[in-house]
Simulated assay, not measured.
Amino acid sequence: MEVVILPSSKEIAGLAADAIEALIRRKPTAVLGLATGSSPLPIYDELARRHAEDGLSFAQAHGFALDEYVGLPAGHHESYREVIRREFTNRVDIAAGNVHGPDGSAKDVLAACQGYEDDIKAAGGVDLQILGVGTDGHIGFNEPGSSFASRTRIKTLLEQTRRDNARFFDSIDQVPHHVVTQGLGTIMDARHVLLVATGAHKAQAVRDFVEGPVAAICAASVLQFHPHATVLLDEAAASALQLADFYRHTYDNKPNWQGL
């Protein structure tokens, strides 16, 4: 796991976009794993800017959303399909048919989950997965206690997660209790995982999954086993890390050819 500490979300977005742009230019048919929430938004803004101003093309790329609420009607403003379209895919030239998301409104949710796994496999697997992390250490909607071997499935949200997400709705009563999410095993299959965390409210979760034990109580800690996981933090999110100075020294002295 590589930990990179940067001054602000602007620098984080730039570095993450550099990695994604390098992938797209090297492999135009790349498969991107797309997260929602606040953390990835500056990355999507920067990629949209590079598309508009520098001609970065996503025309042959594919995108797979990380998760989706269960029970929201099609086209709901806070459906993650709509969020991904609004914040990223409608702002670049990726084909609408190349953007995929779990179906939280399917009549047979279990079958839809297996179908989503099959779709990811058919596309060749995820080349780069963008992630945020919850205040309790969840990634995707893999809440504490999730199996490290889990695949795309339905999950019940903790009340803390519902409270965290209530800011996107008119009230917490409108936040669904259930979601469909890629599992930890699904996420771990991605060739490169790029996790972004900003703000002091994420500091404890960051310390737990970066430097704590690998344990189901902190789902993101499974990334310690990933062969290519990059964690991008601002100073506030990194404030509880015991080895923060070492991470800074390592990145400051990293060879230019190595990349992320």
Rank of each mutant, 00 (worst) to 15 (best):
A215D: 13
G140R: 01
P7F: 14
A236I: 02
I12E: 10
L128I: 14
A229G: 06
S147N: 09
G185Y: 05
V109E: 10
H178E: 14
L6Q: 14
Q182Y: 00
S146T: 12
P176W: 11
R91V: 02
D234Y: 07
G124H: 05
V180D: 09
P42D: 03
A22V: 01
P42E: 03
G33I: 04
S9M: 12
V4W: 15
R151V: 05
T89C: 03
V210P: 00
L260A: 11
P176V: 08
D127K: 07
Y80G: 00
S105H: 09
D173C: 00
G63V: 10
A122D: 02
R25F: 08
F58L: 13
F141E: 05
I20Y: 05
H228G: 01
V109P: 01
V179P: 04
F209E: 00
K155F: 06
Y69Q: 03
D208S: 11
D245L: 06
A65I: 10
R167E: 00
R50S: 11
L194W: 06
V193K: 04
I120P: 02
F169V: 06
R85K: 14
F148H: 10
A166F: 06
F168N: 03
V99Y: 08
L260N: 12
A13I: 08
D119F: 01
V31Q: 10
V222C: 07
L66G: 09
G55Q: 03
V31K: 11
K121H: 08
I20W: 04
F168Y: 15
T135R: 14
K107N: 13
G97P: 04
R50L: 05
G134F: 14
S8D: 15
E78K: 09
F148K: 09
V83Y: 10
S8E: 14
D136E: 09
Q182I: 00
A52Q: 13
I217W: 11
L34R: 14
T152I: 10
A149H: 04
G134E: 03
L110A: 15
S39C: 05
S171D: 05
V99A: 10
D127L: 04
L41K: 13
A74L: 05
N98D: 06
G137Q: 03
V3Y: 07
E53W: 14
D45V: 02
L232A: 01
G137A: 04
N256V: 09
P144Y: 12
Q129G: 10
N142C: 11
F64D: 05
E143W: 01
V4K: 14
R81C: 07
A238F: 04
A216G: 00
V126P: 01
A219S: 14
S57K: 10
L195A: 06
S57P: 02
R162P: 03
F169D: 03
A215I: 12
I120K: 08
G115Y: 12
A190R: 01
L195R: 05
E235P: 01
I43K: 12
L223D: 03
P227M: 07
L158G: 00
A48Q: 07
D54C: 13
R91W: 02
V180N: 05
H51V: 09
Q224M: 06
D234P: 04
Q258I: 01
D103I: 08
I154V: 11
A74H: 08
